[in-house]
């Protein structure tokens, strides 16, 4: 019997865009603060010249990266994220410039968990973690009800252990 691979279609919640914007602002902000403090210290105690240059370069990179990952990236990631779960496989697909498509056999799945940080809790979302012996994967933002249903669904599918040996 031929198994037909369905192109993944389920999307993640749009609320995640705002959350990513907030968390990325915090992350980049703290880096900028850190570099700024180092720069001040460097001027104050007159450190080497190359330290100044390096710090200015780092600050420049952080600013550029902030523009990208606060205003541009979240929208694209959310828009392109797709996943699909069926009896045999979990599929994860995302990315606009770099499209990545992962296929994980259900039988290889060792655990599935949901977690929720403060921002996700406020938005009523969960992220779903799927672990195999080889790696772990994350579906970033699924509405609460759906996430819990998906978790028990995967757990029941994954309960089947396959026989690893062959002749």
């Amino acid at each position: 019997m031929e198994y037909i691979l369905k192109e993944p279609e389920r999307q993640i919640s749009t609320k995640i865009i705002q959350i990513w914007r907030t968390t990325n602002t915090i992350g980049h902000g703290s880096f900028l603060l850190g570099f700024g403090a180092l720069l001040a210290a460097s001027h104050f105690w007159d450190w080497y010249n190359w330290v100044h240059i390096t710090l200015y370069v780092l600050i420049g990179i952080t600013v550029l990266s902030a523009i990208f990952s606060i205003w541009i990236e979240p929208v694209f990631i959310q828009r392109t994220w797709r996943y699909e779960v069926d009896e045999k496989f979990i599929q994860l697909k995302h990315g606009r410039w770099n499209v990545e498509h992962k296929i994980i056999p259900m039988a290889k799945i060792e655990y599935v968990t949901t977690d929720q940080g403060p921002f996700l809790r406020k938005a009523g979302l969960y992220s779903l973690n799927i672990g195999t012996t080889a790696s772990s994967h994350k579906i970033p933002a699924i509405p609460e009800e759906e996430a819990l249903k998906l978790r028990s669904l995967i757990a029941s599918y994954a309960n089947v252990k396959e026989d690893d040996s062959f002749e």
């Binding site: 770099n98 990545e100 992962k102 296929i103 994980i104 012996t133 080889a134």
Partner: peptide, 8 residues
Amino acid sequence: QEIEVSQS
């Protein structure tokens, strides 16, 4: 165990 197909 698992596969990934990607394209830049």
